[in-house]
Amino acid sequence: MDILVFGGTRYFGVHLVNELIKKGHHVTIATRGMTPDSFGTSVERIHVDRYDINQLKDIFKDKEFDIIYDNLAYSSQDIETLFNSLHCHRYILTSSNAVYPFQLNTKEDDFVAAHHVLKMGVRSSFSYDEGKRQAESAIVQLHPQQKTTRVRFPVVLGKDDYTKRLYFYVEHILKGIPMYIDHLTTSFSFISSHDAGAFLAYLSDKDICEAINACSPQSITLQEIFDYIEDHTGKKAMITSDGDKAPFHDIQSHSLNVEKAQNIGFHFTPLSDWLFPLIDFYICQISEDEHNI
């Protein structure tokens, strides 16, 4: 298939592109050209600003794709900018569990984009969670004939996580840096960056035209993460009211139900099989950096 990917040069987008290449698809990555990639001659590249409708119309006016993967839509206007410029048989949007209220065992029907009040606006018009709701709503309400899959991820973690959210905890505990977080019993779902990319690619030949959750089926508390780091470093977390505000601060417990994804045959990596090795990787990385100072 002829596939176009927006957001394929970093993080889980890299894993998506690699998996699509393995599947034998013809892959084009749309990029501003600011982030180098390692795909070599395995992909085609088009330099374009995803958010510039004039560029999109000019570059893609004579092109049509079997699938467009969009990892870069954060608002209703982002959807309209793309759909007024490109044509595809199927559109796969990377969405988020942020569209849901915070709750455990969240199922896809707990947010129905068709019923959400649609408001047109750019990314800065909305909070992150509302922007994702608006992106989904624009697709469903303004383009009901378009075959679309909306993939809802929780927090994505991996060695390539440029936000360094998990790294923050390991670094602060290992270096004895005070941090502030209110509820260590908060429980989360996560997905590895590898699984995120692999699941998106898996959908390339699956006729799923609806919202679908994706994550490791288990959840974990911050206390369990802290306990593991402390046990494996001999260091104790320093939690103070004036410490650095930690990632996931003031977020309620939530998890995703992934029965729909499992029923189409995808097997997510168990949380403990990748999260704890990732913590070990960060411990070694930070320890080596400290030793080399």
Rank of each mutant, 00 (worst) to 15 (best):
R152C: 12
N105H: 14
H183D: 15
H183K: 15
T148M: 01
Q145R: 10
L118M: 12
R133Q: 15
T149D: 09
N105V: 08
D227I: 10
L166I: 12
T185I: 06
C209V: 14
L200I: 11
E136R: 01
P217L: 11
I139T: 08
Q134G: 02
A113D: 02
I191Q: 01
Q103Y: 04
Q134K: 01
D205M: 09
I181T: 03
S96G: 00
L174N: 08
S96M: 09
D205Y: 07
Q146G: 04
K236H: 14
H183Y: 15
V140T: 10
G121F: 06
D110L: 03
C215K: 03
H232W: 06
A214Q: 07
Q103F: 06
D160T: 12
S96P: 06
A138E: 01
Y100N: 02
C215R: 00
E136I: 05
V155L: 12
Q223E: 13
R165S: 06
H143M: 10
Y180Q: 15
R133E: 04
S219R: 11
C209G: 07
D231I: 07
F226K: 14
S193N: 04
D231G: 09
Y100I: 00
I181W: 07
Y162V: 13
L203T: 10
I92R: 07
Q218A: 14
T94G: 10
D182F: 04
H143S: 10
T186Y: 03
L166G: 03
S189E: 03
K206I: 13
D207R: 11
A98L: 02
K107G: 06
T185H: 14
H116Y: 15
D231Q: 14
A138V: 02
I208D: 11
T163P: 01
I181M: 12
D227N: 15
L118R: 05
N105I: 10
A214E: 08
S187C: 14
L166W: 08
F153V: 02
R150G: 00
A214C: 07
Y167W: 13
Y91D: 08
M120K: 11
I177V: 15
Y167M: 00
D205L: 09
Y128D: 04
V151T: 05
S192P: 09
D195E: 12
A98G: 15
D129R: 04
T149K: 02
L222T: 03
D110S: 13
Q146C: 07
A211R: 03
Q218N: 12
E108C: 05
S124L: 11
H232T: 08
G197E: 00
F199K: 06
Y167H: 14
G121E: 02
R152D: 03
Y180V: 05
F188T: 01
F102A: 13
T148R: 03
Q141L: 08
H116L: 05
N97M: 14
L142I: 05
S125H: 05
H194Y: 00
S216L: 08
S216K: 02
D160H: 06
L142P: 03
F153E: 07
C209P: 01
A237T: 09
S219E: 12
D195R: 09
Y202D: 00
A198H: 09
Y162L: 10
D110P: 01
R133I: 00
P217F: 10
D182Y: 11
L93K: 00
F111T: 01
L174V: 08
V99S: 02
F153K: 05
K107F: 08
A135S: 06
L184E: 10
E108K: 11
Y128A: 08
Y228Q: 00
Y180C: 13
K175Y: 11
